[in-house]
Design a protein around this nucleic acid. Sequence first.
DNA 1: ATGCACCCTGTAGCTGCTACAGGGTCAAGA
DNA 2: TCTTGACCCTGTAGCAGCTACAGGGTGCAT
Lengths: 141, 141
Amino acid sequence: MGLKIGELAKATGTKVETVRYYERIGLLPQAERTSGNYRSYTPAHLDHLNFIRHARRLGFDIADIRSLLDLADQPERDCADADRIASGHLRAVEDKIARLVLLREELNRMIGQCRGGSVGNCRIIETLADHSLCRSDHAGG
Amino acid sequence: MGLKIGELAKATGTKVETVRYYERIGLLPQAERTSGNYRSYTPAHLDHLNFIRHARRLGFDIADIRSLLDLADQPERDCADADRIASGHLRAVEDKIARLVLLREELNRMIGQCRGGSVGNCRIIETLADHSLCRSDHAGG
DNA sequence: ATGCACCCTGTAGCTGCTACAGGGTCAAGA
DNA sequence: TCTTGACCCTGTAGCAGCTACAGGGTGCAT
């Protein structure tokens, strides 16, 4: 009657192993078993897993998803908790972007200085080997 | 005479365990040992580790750093190899930024729709639970 | 009876470290 | 000489979030 794990996986764009993993870590509730010991999933499981997958695609980590699922189960609770989790994640994403943008600039600078030729006078290798750059984070602050 | 591991670590802003890890995976050449079985590092090790740390700070992975170190050891080789590695990494960084920017927008939209109140009508939770969004990547492409 | 697609459990691997446990070494001080 | 304490050693397990086996069982069709 219920969905088999492969069907659930296909319906949500998840790998079978990942579904089992979510169950093992307690993110997805245990499924009933058939007489042959196959997992048998309900539409509620489908919703649950869709929620998880969507949150994962948005970059939420497992701990956050646990909290969000908890909240989703208690409709009377204050939305502020969900807001806090999402905003915290947004800030983390913004931080990551900022760090990557700096990185991109530094890489661009490095690559832009490479005028071809042999490794012996390659600016890329030189930059990486440069002593004065090696601990700029420590020297600077 | 040479540097002890703690001294090398301090001089490069690395943890002692990390230095041992780099040696174990063959990224940093083995050090001589003292009579008491302590590792004894040379200035060449210091240069080598500084190179590694700088490349790591720029986000290069271990495999790339291995290649870059290889290149740095062969000054007669064509710089294009170094350029290829660096440019490939740059592209990966740009990809990551692009994906995170999309993520940021989606998170912003989601959070912006939250008008407070109870979880029961929280747009954040609703968005995550929304079926139509759950496999948009499949549906759309 | 046989083949095949699917399911099961358990465990190891991925990246780049980090953090122990349980010991040994070495220089300084009492 | 003994002891303290900072350092060093090896080996192994843990983090996140899966992924990929090995080695077996189930269920349906032929």
